[in-house]
Design a protein around this nucleic acid. Structure first.
Lengths: 346, 346
DNA sequence: ATAAACTCTTTACATGTGTAAAAAGGGAGG
DNA sequence: CCTCCCTTTTTACACATGTAAAGAGTTTAT
């Protein structure tokens, strides 16, 4: 590489014959210098290997352009879809995303929040674990930058923090209504790890069932182990039931698609989808989230599609509004509707 | 929160009665001050809300403790598994991970590399797209920090950059040998997007077949569209064939599990796994990678399990060795073996 | 008790960039 | 050509921390 490596803006200034303050303004916004100058800088930059020092840059600007994102797990396509949506939306607005993963661990969640504070983030989008131990960290961080909770929210409302997620009451109601209309009343198979969604979906299920004049009924899941291995959980619970010929022709609404994927596998293992079995009544399994692979299951999974892209966009929009103005408007609670994806499994 | 918010180390120094240089040393390594002092600082820190300024800290230290990771996609459980492994390994060594996603786009890959340079990263782990246009950026970045390529590598060897990945020759050979031993010779269904793995696996398949005295044969995939939507690709290709009753009793080795998942869905759609169909010969589908959901397919997918955790660990180890010493040892090319996961699909 | 060895405090300068203020330069309109 | 206005250059200080050096204080060994 013949391009000379230039380490500081001062060196650059000497090398291309433009004063440092002008370069500084150019890098912040090329339009803030005269078009001719802007053009000249752009040209000369091509012959040189210079990358500005982000750390030094951002230390002095009022805003760092850094947006922190904290998710509980990387190995979950729901969260990565959210991450992808956020990343794309953030890029458009010129933000840099700093992703932190709590690995389902409350201490790591607190550490992640502290890290974002130490990096002078402009804001944070957090998909929280829903454990109380992190609340103090959220409150403290809330004094440093605006926070938008996405997907689920802390057990206690955090002062002035926004929320964007899916309206579980709406989405679960829509699914329950459809299932009741088209066949037997559904049993509910809940999430083992109890964040706000787990609780809200369970309650929404119970409420809708009662509203429709039915009795809510839950799939017995034995010892409620807290695990993020949802497929294994769904498979384990349903395999146990199917082995005893229980629920083999039931309608089962799973709290999320990953559980449903495990349940479908169990059903397949027990031959419940084979020809001839339908005579004894038809097993129906439904999920929630529209996991990217749910359409590749066999049978393809009926589910409620969350507007993940919308959630990501709104989260970024809320943050960028807050970052701009100093006055904190009232916290926003935005619940998006989910859409029924009717497929083969119901 | 009654804890007083303290913004700078100078304020902290006054608030808790410890000189700033001592605090600076404490934050870098609590063991670098006398145990009694360390204890005292720790105690008094509890009554105060202070987080050090990462940007200012790292600007002045020789090393930032930042390790950049660039992956092509978030919505791929293979890459997120790798990310998870890297994150865990990095955390143990005290590194902070800065994840960048190229979204399968070459320009974004270059941008991501530049961002890491501007953030004065100590090193980078890159799962590259395998397009030539990024090579210049890799070479330039290689002057700033050590790079470890993971999973796949650039088309041209980058000066002094390490590589850790799976030995495709070994893994594909093991799979092909098994498939030949247990049934018909396999056809190969390749990856649409041609990174180094795509090419290596294809070549490994052809070589092993020839070594075993067979003729390599490929599933015709029509126009070779470059897409990262592997499931859709696998499904589309096989659905077209099955519709014309082609390959319905074949043995098909897919270049990765995501393609195989699409293929299995197509097979199910066409009833190829139904009882009675086996009389006409048995369809076998195998994958590669041990995707987290491959065991939940029906039939569960036979695949080669990459040692992802090992790859992540090694990548971090290589980097931390390079970060420590200034002298660049010879580049390492580490290829890990994959293990056959025998399941139902073959 | 004294000296030696640590450790901490004080002081001062370094990092690479943002930014303000004053001076200098350049272009457009008269 | 001159003036006014806009832009750039020059100069200087700011940011929050790292770090070196010298002195003060404390601990440990003799």
């Amino acid at each position: 590489m013949q391009k000379p490596k230039i380490n500081t803006m001062k060196e650059l200034s000497q090398a291309i014959g433009i004063s440092r303050p002008t370069l500084s303004r150019y890098f912040q916004d090329p339009a803030s210098v005269r078009p001719a100058t802007s053009q000249k800088i752009k040209e000369r930059l091509k012959d040189v290997d210079y990358v500005y020092n982000f750390l030094a840059t951002r230390q002095n600007r009022k805003s760092t352009g850094l947006i922190g994102v904290i998710i509980p797990h990387f190995n979950d396509l729901f969260f990565t879809s959210l991450l992808e949506a956020i990343d794309v939306a953030a890029r458009k607005k010129g933000f840099t995303i700093m992703t932190q993963c709590s690995h389902g661990n409350e201490d790591m969640e607190v550490t992640a929040v502290e890290k974002l504070r130490s990096m002078s983030a402009d804001g944070a989008i957090i998909a929280p674990l829903g454990v109380d131990s992190s609340n103090a960290a959220f409150v403290a961080a809330g004094k440093d930058f605006p926070i938008v909770f996405a997907d689920s929210h802390p057990s206690v409302p955090i002062d002035k923090a926004d929320f964007v997620g899916t309206d579980n009451a709406q989405s679960i109601a829509a699914m329950v209504e459809y299932l009741c209309r088209a066949g037997d009343t559904p049993l509910f198979l809940g999430m083992p790890h109890m964040n706000s969604n787990a609780i809200e979906r369970e309650e929404a299920y119970a409420k809708t069932m009662r509203d429709l004049g039915h009795v809510p009924a839950f799939v017995e899941s034995g010892s409620a182990t807290k695990t993020w291995d949802f497929e294994a959980y769904g498979h384990g619970v349903m395999d146990a039931h199917f082995s005893r010929q229980r629920h083999t022709a039931a309608t089962i609404l799973c709290a999320n698609d990953r559980i449903a994927i495990g349940a479908i596998r169990a059903a397949n293992r027990h031959g419940l989808y084979e020809r001839g079995h339908e005579a004894r009544g038809r097993l129906r399994i439904a999920g929630h989230d529209d996991h990217p692979l749910s359409q590749y299951m066999f049978p393809a999974l009926t589910t409620m599609a969350q507007d993940i892209e919308g959630i990501g966009k709104v989260a970024i929009r809320l943050l960028s509004e807050r970052v701009g103005s100093d006055e904190r408007a009232d916290p926003v609670r935005l619940m998006k509707e989910a859409a029924l994806k009717l497929r083969e499994s119901t």
